[in-house]
Amino acid sequence: MSNVTRLRHALPMSPDINKAVSDLDNAIANAVSAAKAAGLPQGLVVSLLHGHAQAQTNIMVS
């Protein structure tokens, strides 16, 4: 996703973190593309992503 703004932080982010973010972004984009190619409805893809984001948010604030 070349149109995503790069992360900025008060301290420089390590190359390992930058690579992990890039790898995660690519994996998500590839999974969404595969799901769309398989014919999953866009709403289902969005709801699955939202559900995982909500679960991770719950873990972070607990």
Results as ranks from 00 to 15, higher is better:
60 M>W: 14
10 A>H: 09
55 A>P: 07
52 H>L: 05
34 A>Y: 08
34 A>S: 04
8 R>P: 05
62 S>N: 10
39 G>F: 02
30 N>C: 02
38 A>V: 06
12 P>T: 00
5 T>S: 04
48 L>C: 05
54 Q>V: 14
46 V>E: 01
36 K>T: 06
36 K>W: 08
42 Q>G: 03
39 G>D: 01
20 A>M: 04
26 N>K: 13
43 G>K: 01
6 R>G: 13
38 A>T: 05
31 A>Y: 05
60 M>S: 11
47 S>Y: 11
51 G>A: 00
40 L>M: 14
23 D>T: 01
56 Q>V: 08
37 A>Q: 09
24 L>N: 03
54 Q>L: 14
44 L>T: 09
6 R>N: 13
6 R>Q: 08
42 Q>P: 04
14 S>I: 03
59 I>L: 14
19 K>G: 06
44 L>M: 15
23 D>A: 01
61 V>L: 06
52 H>R: 07
38 A>C: 03
46 V>Q: 02
55 A>D: 09
20 A>N: 03
35 A>H: 04
46 V>P: 10
1 M>S: 01
58 N>Y: 08
22 S>K: 07
18 N>K: 13
33 S>A: 04
40 L>A: 04
59 I>D: 10
3 N>F: 11
39 G>R: 00
41 P>M: 03
29 A>R: 08
22 S>Y: 12
36 K>R: 03
43 G>C: 05
13 M>F: 12
10 A>Q: 10
40 L>S: 14
5 T>V: 06
51 G>R: 01
5 T>D: 11
16 D>T: 10
10 A>D: 12
56 Q>P: 11
36 K>Y: 10
12 P>R: 01
23 D>N: 02
20 A>D: 08
3 N>D: 05
56 Q>G: 06
3 N>R: 08
15 P>F: 14
43 G>A: 02
26 N>S: 10
55 A>Y: 12
14 S>A: 01
62 S>L: 15
36 K>N: 04
34 A>M: 03
55 A>S: 04
37 A>S: 09
29 A>C: 07
54 Q>I: 15
20 A>H: 04
16 D>S: 06
57 T>D: 07
1 M>F: 10
40 L>I: 13
31 A>T: 11
